[in-house]
């Protein structure tokens, strides 16, 4: 792409941009990489680039609650470096990656459910408010 962001124009080395940029992936950077932790059984570290506590806390809390997951925790090692490290250990019946994926899927569906619930409740609220206004306005 030919586009140039003038903000970043004067930094040819770009190292500090990769480090301190908070939401844009750098060249060749992958959103998520899995590294198997050899010192623990059925355990992987997931490194999420350009993410923060929003995903880190959400995923680790839900992984802790998931079936067949023995251990889950995350850290944002430095507040200026937009990386989340998430460690997941399972009981061996599924891989940490499978646990991670199904937790993500669960969350997507929970969010979808929340969105539909909100829409439904919002319509009810607006309907009730209209009723109130109509009643007051007409003096009924």
């Amino acid at each position: 792409m030919a586009s140039v962001n003038p903000q970043h124009n004067n930094a040819p080395e770009c190292v500090w941009i990769i480090l301190f940029e908070t939401f844009l992936l750098g060249d060749g950077e992958k959103k998520i990489t899995e590294t198997v932790v050899t010192s623990m059984s059925n355990c992987s570290d997931f490194l999420l680039k350009k993410e923060d506590h929003t995903l880190g806390n959400l995923l680790s809390e839900y992984l802790k609650k998931a079936d067949k997951v023995l251990f889950a925790a995350y850290k944002v090692a430095h507040p200026n470096v937009a990386e989340v490290l998430l460690r997941v250990q399972t009981d061996g019946t599924i891989t940490p990656r499978e646990a991670f994926i199904s937790t993500c899927k669960l969350l997507v569906s929970q969010l979808g459910h929340t969105g539909r619930e909100f829409q439904k409740e919002l319509a009810l609220r607006q309907f009730a408010d209209q009723g109130d206004q109509g009643g007051a306005g007409d003096g009924l």
Partner: peptide, 14 residues
């Protein structure tokens, strides 16, 4: 190749 938002100076796509 899930392209999350990528910074443009590296030629990344949107």
């Amino acid at each position: 190749d899930y392209n999350g938002p990528r910074s443009p100076e590296f030629g990344g796509g949107g």
